[in-house]
């Protein structure tokens, strides 16, 4: 990978001094050499924030709503809708939370198992805080009081056809189980705009297995359309106040809890669609 000094230099060029200084307050566990055990690193996060700045400010012109719902400390789970063929929604939530929390909090996006298999991309995501979606990883992060970003729709959500935009796929239950077991609040998140960013023409199965992906998407546009992103955060759902930790093993309980989270995200999407003035405005 690129040397840390180079990364620091690039971050300085891409970010204003004030933002760079803010990143010094970032809460990040240092396992001894400036990296946390999963590979996240402050300099790389600065570099990532610099890279995303153009997309966040100019291209998608992200508007953030109610970011005060993101807990300022302690374990929590952001549960969001997932869409847009490529995961720009994850990077925009990552940037948005970094921008709107004080001191800044690092979101740890939980990635599908195939992402760490991807050369360069997998490493870059790890440096910026991403983790492979194994049970052990998320457990360790929640126990360390980290802020997770989970897309309960999974790859089905990001790969759904354009005609099904803003129709949530049924949420998986893993995030609800984790929230109940680890007593972590779930913050529902809705991303409005991403569903129109990159209509998918088709998907190819052949070759995807080489790197463990379920398919290779073929988008209608090479670049994402400059849609206007709106990110809505809902009031935290304290599932752990309604369920005991041992109930995390009960299928009916976690299903019910996941449905509650899905309903909260759906409500935020409805609000976002009503409030926005257009796809690009």
């Amino acid at each position: 990978m690129v040397k840390r000094e180079t990364v620091t230099g690039l971050a300085r060029r891409m970010l204003p001094d004030a933002r760079l200084a803010r990143l010094q307050d970032l809460q990040l566990l240092d396992a001894g050499h400036g990296y946390d055990p999963f590979g996240a690193n402050r300099e790389w996060i600065g570099f990532g924030a610099g890279l995303m700045r153009f997309l966040y400010e100019k291209w998608f012109r992200v508007t953030s709503h109610d970011a005060h719902h993101v807990p300022s400390s302690g374990a929590a789970i952001l549960a969001s809708n997932h869409s847009g063929t490529l995961p720009y929604d994850a990077t925009m939530i990552w940037s948005d939370v970094l921008e709107h929390t004080s001191p800044p909090r690092l979101v740890r996006p939980v990635m599908d198992h195939f992402v760490p298999l991807l050369p360069i991309v997998g490493t870059f995501f790890a440096r910026a805080g991403g983790v492979g979606g194994s049970r052990g990883n998320v457990r360790a992060l929640l126990e360390a009081g980290e802020l997770l970003l989970i897309f309960p729709e999974g790859t089905v959500g990001i790969g759904k056809p354009f005609r099904e935009r803003y129709q949530l796929q049924r949420f998986r239950v893993g995030h609800a189980e984790l929230a109940i077991r680890h007593r972590a609040p779930v913050v529902p998140v809705a991303v409005v705009g991403a569903e129109e960013q990159m209509p998918q023409l088709t998907r190819i199965q052949a070759g995807a297995k080489l790197f463990g992906a379920p398919y290779i998407p073929i988008p209608a546009t090479l670049l994402p359309l400059p849609v206007h992103y709106h990110i809505y955060y809902g009031a935290p759902l304290n599932l752990h106040e309604d369920y005991r930790p041992e109930q995390a093993d009960e299928p009916a309980v976690v299903r019910e809890a996941a449905d509650r989270v899905q309903a909260a995200v759906a409500g935020l999407i409805t609000r976002g669609l009503e409030e926005r003035e257009g796809v690009f405005r």
């Binding site: 492979g132 194994s134 049970r135 052990g136």
Partner: peptide
């Protein structure tokens, strides 16, 4: 491996 936790507990 890629699909295993990066932080290894005794039950890994």
């Amino acid at each position: 491996k890629a699909d295993q936790p990066a932080v290894i507990g005794e039950d890994h």
